[in-house]
Design a binder for these strands. Structure first.
Lengths: 198, 198, 198, 198
DNA sequence: CATGAATGAGATTTCATTCAT
DNA sequence: GATGAATGAAATCTCATTCAT
């Protein structure tokens, strides 16, 4: 029957959210704990009460990011029926996420850069992409088996699929006006589905 | 450019080289001027003699990086004769560069991340990709005109080409064993040339 | 004494006990209230309920320490009959205490060091040793009067007695294997009684 | 021909000296780097320029302390001729040091207390006393061999000698007025030499 | 040209203490 | 009585930059 119980998880989430916005705004290594505290509307001490240190906090932000994207992709893929639809679901899920919140990709790139110094982050990045490739590979293999796609190496096409998505979004965050993101998404589908169907 | 150019270009180049290695090793925002001084075998003071400040130095490193890659691509493209060969020259140039020196891409990603905070870097990144897209677009347009490629939007295919290259290399730096880079290069050619030839 | 005494003496005693163990383990100024709370199995808040602040708590630990040792010595001395036996009782009491619990001396040294900053502690330390010297002096004077000991300055021999005990135990806590504590005790008796009997 | 060369060792020594005074004044764990900086008349940064961190600095202070005392004892012992004179030289050296600078012992006790937490300090303390015991043991053994002292265990008497010295000085720093330090020194000689000669 | 000692602002982190529940 | 979330002051440490020599 202790007081304030139940506040903790909410407060944790708030701090993670605030940190996400700060990273998007100023970049991973330019934020101070004070920035985060101000943004979350709490005192500096509170952040260390919930997170052992800066690295722990940032890792939590990254985990939430990945969990969100994973969930979004999974839900979209689940709803799709045929393998081609599922491939498009993956593509659509990522492009949508970026389109609806450009910060998403900005923060992701920041995490990429930090992984040089942080082995845990490096491993997390590696496993994230491995997971996406694995998902894509499974769908493509299924498509080949069921006659939707031509005979090819599913693993390699999976890498290309993930690569094409990331490659487009990267270019886009540096220059939003370079091309239209919706068209980039269609182009991705066209190229990958085109390649798979012959 | 930067001040005091011409005083001792060799020393300048050495410092830039040392900085490049340091970034690759520890990441942009984890290096100290002391790290760089140690790596270059000079005193801390001397770095400030050649570069106004840390940002100036890092920008010089970035400029050199881009200049190197630009030159490498240009030389390879020049040697190619037909548009398809030229497209493959671009692909080959980048993949080769990464393969021969993984640090290259690592440092590049680091610069990407820093551009959130640094408008000059953001602009430099944007213009780099714009330049590559422009080069690719020109070649593709030429290919369409000369009947090598099917009718399509050269700009969009150019974006896809650059995106696919970057997407592959990004995945690779997180996990070298995820796939073979030479095969990724072939896959890129296959997908893009396949798409262009229908 | 301290406020709120009598509210729950058992809880108070538990906290003092836990604090004693923490000091022995990590040292006076390296412990946090959290350490103590964890060790006592209570919440941080409760400590401040029983003790105004950290200093008050630490002083209580010191007081208990001294009270324990005083009682132990008094009981042993009381049981002894002749002055030489009483001198040996003092020696035996302290050595026994240290032997049975090395932490005892470790914590004591820690309190010594803190007295530089804390006048109350300084006074407490001074009075503790004054008390022991006084006790020893009284016994020695009695021994001289009753013909057990040769004519000498009881106060000075008392200082030497206390000094020899402390000097041995100090060396021993730094290196248990330097010498055997039982033999050190015998040596103390031999030297002091030998000196007193000429 | 670089400037300011030669300043470094002097500055290092100054900081060590200032730290020593601060410890004597406020105690090991109550000093801040700012206190030391102020006392040394330099900026906070300078201290970290010369010493990696607080622990490193404090260890340097301790080393200097020990080095000073060691040298002082060695010089006095060297000048003495017979074993009894050498024993008195050890006793005199330590008592003199404390008498001429009470801070010496205060700081030493502080280091003792810190050794609970710091294994390096613990080892240093242990080795310091082991060294003193070894020196005393050698002298006593020599004295026995040459007929100056009665047959006895030199190691145990050495421990007693060191113990008696430390025990006296400890009591004295808590209460200067408890007894006269010169008389304590004489008492130490009387007791130890008395014991050794019969 | 070159050095490296010095600075000082600012970052992370710790922790005794308070207080609403 | 008891909890643990919250505070904020203060401590350690880092580091780009300056500058006398």
């Amino acid at each position: 029957m202790s007081p304030k119980v139940g506040v903790a998880p909410k407060r944790r989430a708030e701090i993670i959210e605030a940190t996400f916005f700060c990273i998007a705004l100023k970049g991973y290594s330019n934020i101070t704990m004070q920035d985060i505290a101000d943004s979350a509307g709490v005192s500096k001490g509170v952040i260390h009460y919930y997170f052992r240190n800066k690295e722990e906090l940032f890792l939590s932000v990254f985990e939430k990011l990945v969990r969100d994207l994973d969930g979004h992709i999974a839900r979209k893929v689940e709803r799709a029926k045929t393998p081609p639809e599922k491939v498009c679901a993956i593509i659509g899920a990522v492009f949508e996420k970026i389109r609806e919140n450009k910060k998403f990709q900005v923060v992701l790139v920041d995490f990429w850069a930090q992984s040089t110094k942080n082995p845990r982050l490096m491993a997390a990045n590696a496993s994230q992409y491995a997971r996406y490739r694995h998902l894509a590979k499974k769908i493509i293999a299924e498509g080949i088996r069921d006659g939707y796609f031509k005979e090819c190496d599913p693993a390699r096409v999976a890498s290309a699929l993930i690569g094409l998505i990331e490659g487009f979004t990267i270019q886009w965050i540096f220059d939003e006006k370079a091309f239209d993101l919706v068209r980039a998404q269609k182009m991705t589908e066209e190229i990958i589905i085109g390649f798979l169907k012959e």
